[in-house]
Amino acid sequence: MPNPTFGEKNAHSLIASLPVLKRIPKHPHVAFIKEIERGGVDRSDLAEPLGEIFHERRTIARPRLGSLFLLAAYFDVDISLLLTNPRMTAKQCDLGFRLTLPRTVHRKIPRTREERREAIEIALRRTVQGPAPYPSFAEFSREHGMHEQTIFRHFPRLSRELISKRSRSIEKLRSSEAGRIDASLRKFLDRGEINLSKEAIRSTALSCRSSICQVRKAWKRLRVAQQG
C-alpha cells in the first residue's frame, strides 16, 4: 500500500525472511542499543520515545514483537537485520533519525472493577447472541483485557455457551468442507480414476477451499471404502 500502517512494512519483511532466520542472537535489541550508545546517543534521550525497551533492569526483559517493530521503525532499519546482526545494523543505520512515531492510544476501559465486569458481561452476551463466526474464549479474553479464568469464574454460563457455540460452528464448517471434498472426489471415482495427479489434488483443494492434506486424506478414505 502507498501509506503502510505502523509495523506493516517490517511485518512483511519479517515474514519474508522467516525461512532463512536459522539463528537469532540472544537479546538482539540489547546489542543494538549498546552499539547505538557507543555512537554517542544518550540513553536518556531515547527513554521517552521508546519507553520500556530502554529501562534498566537487573535481568533483561524479553521484548514483545511490537517493541521490536518500534525499535526498527524509530531507527529506520530492517527488522530481519536487527534480529540477525544487531551490532552491524546499528553501525550502518543513519543516526540523524527523529522519526514521528505513532501517537499512543490508550484503550478506553471502565475505571472500576464493577464497571469492567459489567462491560465484559455485555460484550460476552452480545458475542454469544451474535452470528458466527464466534471467537475462541482465549481470543475474547485477550480482546477485552481480562484473564480467561477470571471471566469464566464470573460468567460461567455465558462462557460455556460461547465455547459450545464456537465448537458447533467449527464442526459445521468442517462438515461442510468434508462434504465439498467428497463430492468433488467422487467425480473422479465415477470416471474410474484410481490415482490422482498432484495437479488434480491441488485443483480440488482450491475449488473446495481446503488444504491439500485434507483432500489426500479424503481420497484415501474414499478409495478404501470403495475397495471394501
Rank of each mutant, 00 (worst) to 15 (best):
L14M: 09
L185I: 08
Q149E: 13
R174W: 03
S184K: 15
F152Y: 11
R166P: 08
R43H: 02
F6Y: 15
M1P: 09
E48D: 07
L99S: 13
A218P: 01
H144G: 04
R168W: 09
I33G: 01
A119S: 08
E148D: 05
V77I: 13
L68M: 06
I120F: 02
S67E: 15
A178F: 04
D78Y: 04
A73W: 02
S136I: 02
S207W: 01
D190W: 02
L71P: 04
Q227A: 14
R113Y: 04
P25W: 10
I36T: 10
R57C: 07
V128Q: 08
R166Y: 11
A90H: 09
V41Q: 02
I151H: 04
A225P: 02
A11D: 07
V224W: 04
G96N: 15
A138N: 13
I53Q: 05
V77W: 06
R180Q: 12
V77L: 05
V224D: 13
A218G: 03
Y134K: 08
M88R: 13
R58H: 12
S184H: 13
L83K: 00
G179P: 00
I15F: 01
G192Q: 06
I53R: 05
R57M: 09
E139I: 04
H55Q: 15
P133H: 12
R87N: 03
G145P: 01
F32R: 10
S80C: 00
R98I: 10
R221S: 11
K220T: 13
T84D: 01
I120A: 02
E56S: 14
P135S: 07
R107M: 06
E37L: 04
E52H: 12
R87K: 14
A61M: 12
R166I: 12
E199V: 13
S176H: 11
N10E: 05
R57L: 10
A178H: 10
H144Q: 07
E139V: 05
E199P: 01
D42V: 02
S175C: 05
I60W: 10
